[in-house]
Write a protein that binds this DNA or RNA. Sequence first.
DNA 1: ATAGGCATGTAAGCAGTTACATGATTTA
DNA 2: TAAATCATGTAACTGCTTACATGCCTAT
Lengths: 191, 191
Amino acid sequence: MALRHAVLAALLNGEYSGYQLTKIFDIGVSNFWYAAPQQLYAELTKLEADGLVAGREVVQRGRPNKRVFKVTEAGLGELAAFAATPAKPLLIRDDLAVKVHAVDLLDPEPVIEQLHDRAREAAAKLEVFEQILVSLRGDQDEEAFLRDGEHVGPYLSCLAGCRLERETRDWCRETARTLSARLARAGKDMS
Amino acid sequence: MALRHAVLAALLNGEYSGYQLTKIFDIGVSNFWYAAPQQLYAELTKLEADGLVAGREVVQRGRPNKRVFKVTEAGLGELAAFAATPAKPLLIRDDLAVKVHAVDLLDPEPVIEQLHDRAREAAAKLEVFEQILVSLRGDQDEEAFLRDGEHVGPYLSCLAGCRLERETRDWCRETARTLSARLARAGKDMS
DNA sequence: ATAGGCATGTAAGCAGTTACATGATTTA
DNA sequence: TAAATCATGTAACTGCTTACATGCCTAT
């Protein structure tokens, strides 16, 4: 079980409800863990049953009430045990790269479009991540913050996200350019 | 179903057996698709039953015989349909990044070790990928090959793998360095 | 009014993981 | 002679995805 640890790690920064976690997994945590919203509600239920998180009701005005969760002592123990075991290899599954791999025998136009889409998404995510970095380090510069800051974990994982999105953006752009150029040449040869 | 398309894409380069595919998914295809060996045998059986790949027996001396598979016309059609549908978001799940995210409340030493391990693996993979690039483009330079080469798909997806491994290597090294420096400072403060 | 965000789930089905199982041949 | 490589699976279990379901409040 592995989603469990990602949820615990996300809850270290504060108390969140299931709904808030879906947002966090959609942007922040998404650089290293993908999870569907329904998974999160289910996992929170299990984590609470196992005593690894504790929920409490928050009464809201103008909106439905919500249950927010925080990591318990036992939950922290679970995370500590997890951190000490050898890491599994990176799990990655990318539809778009499969399409590029096979592009020689396929119609390249829809693939090129999808590359543009992905490049745009990556650029947008990169901007969000860079904003998160600024808000985490406050007025310090990066070097000072990483040396003296109290909580650097989220900063360091966000740096990984920045790298991933930047490379994704650039690879998508270059690949789209390459395929478009070949398409234009192929078109010319016909005429 | 998605592994299906990754297998079809991998079989476009030639005929492979289940065992050979496990090797390819372990190094080559692994930059964009992770799959366990048992999945591949199961998927090949299904793909053959559905007529998307065709297998034939290869008799070998000194080793067990094997069945190699190639993509059929129907399989190519399946891939073409897949390429034309919108790409799913990248699926990524990284244990190690979860640990880094939570590192402030945990013992950093095992995490630092795992970062070194991952950096080594990434560096090794990067070398392999760069060799693959050289063998794919032959004596041409990259620009000329991408303009005039016949099969650029595997080259382009391998470029994505290079980017991923390079960034992984560098992020792991820098993160390990940051955490080690903080550990050393914390130790000094005690004395 | 209606679309979108907040808030939380259930249920069915499919995909993926882990453990088990076998056996020959080559290399160290 | 032991370990590694080649070669292929089955079975049980767990985890994940997709579709469905509900309902209130806010902003346009």
